[in-house]
Simulated scan of single mutants.
Amino acid sequence: MRILLRFTAGLLFLATATPALAQEVTPQSEDWTFTSVPERKAVMASVGFSSGLTIAARCLDGVYDVLITGLPEASSGALSRELGIQTGDQSQPHISVWTVGTRRDAAFSRIPVLVARDLAEGGKLQVIVPSASGGPRTRYVMDVDASSTAIEQTLTACGRSLVDPRQIRADEIDGNGQDGLPDTVRWKIMPRPDFPAPVNDRSPLEGYVVLSCVADGEGRLTQCQSESEQPAGYHLGRAVERSLSRARIQLSDQAANAGLALAGRMIVFNVNFKMEP
């Protein structure tokens, strides 16, 4: 069988492109609930609202997720959608890509640790659902108690921390879980990961991995971490990480002309796997 690895460029959703009209869901104040189920190797911090929206950050058998249920249903056939999360004193929402769940009103973050760190700030929380088919966007506005302890426990259970030890400023993070690289960089030398060996005699036909790495001045990707992968349990993230030592990136022409520095930037990118006969 031939293995096809796709590194496709995705489009970023611009917050300023949302329509002026929006459906507003009135503020509500809630606190997080922490749950531990040791026999399932699971811990979860969750909060629910009378609007029907529920947000959960969880570590389940070593896999970290942030999921939202009760959203307006994703369009038919859509595998991903973009959602905005705005917390505390943030002036703009962080728009990122989420994978649509089996239920069309559920979505899983492709950068769950980054989202969880925002959620832990508490205070005013906004969840923004971009418009579909030209209709108005939906914006949920809620007050959530600061919950650094509850969310920190879920992160710790999966070997992550509330503060990124790489100490990257928000304005030096490029990418939101979109396919391929963010538009500030491009591949100079592409990674060539191998499709990992089967697990229990099974292999996925397709999947994706989202990683975050810190670039150095020569375009090397260092301090890499897998942020999410689907399907879980097949070591897709490890396969990509092993291939990154020879990969190199460079600034896009637009980023270079804007005077951006490559060294020290965190690059969040997606690698798609697809096995073809």
Results as ranks from 00 to 15, higher is better:
S91E: 08
S50L: 03
S252E: 11
L211P: 03
Y208P: 06
P193V: 07
I151A: 03
G159H: 02
N257T: 15
I168T: 15
E172V: 01
G219P: 15
R238W: 00
P130Q: 09
S46R: 07
A256T: 15
I55W: 06
P191H: 00
S76N: 12
Q250Y: 07
D171P: 02
G88C: 02
Q167C: 09
A146P: 04
Q250S: 15
L11N: 08
V37Y: 04
G259Q: 11
A57R: 00
L262K: 13
V25K: 06
S161V: 11
I168V: 15
Q223G: 00
R220V: 02
L262M: 14
G52Q: 01
T102C: 00
A56Y: 03
L60T: 12
A45T: 07
I55Q: 05
Q23F: 10
V66H: 10
E152R: 15
S50F: 01
I111G: 12
T54G: 07
P38W: 01
V271K: 02
S147Y: 00
T54H: 09
H235G: 04
V210R: 06
G175A: 10
T154P: 02
F13D: 05
S96W: 04
Y234T: 09
L155A: 11
S212R: 12
L12M: 06
P27A: 13
Q23H: 10
F273G: 05
T18R: 05
Q223T: 02
G175D: 11
A132T: 09
I128K: 10
Q230R: 13
P93F: 00
E82P: 08
N200C: 00
S243L: 08
T138M: 01
A56F: 03
D145Y: 05
E229Y: 04
K41S: 13
A232P: 06
R242I: 04
V129I: 14
A247R: 07
Q225V: 12
K188G: 09
N257R: 15
F269D: 08
L260I: 10
Q92T: 08
V97K: 09
R2E: 12
S109H: 01
D171L: 04
E152T: 14
S75E: 14
F49Q: 03
L244Q: 04
A106S: 11
G264E: 11
R242P: 00
S75P: 03
T8V: 13
P231V: 02
L11T: 14
V268H: 04
V47S: 08
R117M: 04
V268K: 01
M275E: 05
G134Q: 04
A107G: 11
P182Y: 08
W98M: 11
T8I: 11
P165D: 06
L211K: 06
R166H: 01
P165C: 09
A22G: 08
R166G: 00
H235A: 13
Y234A: 08
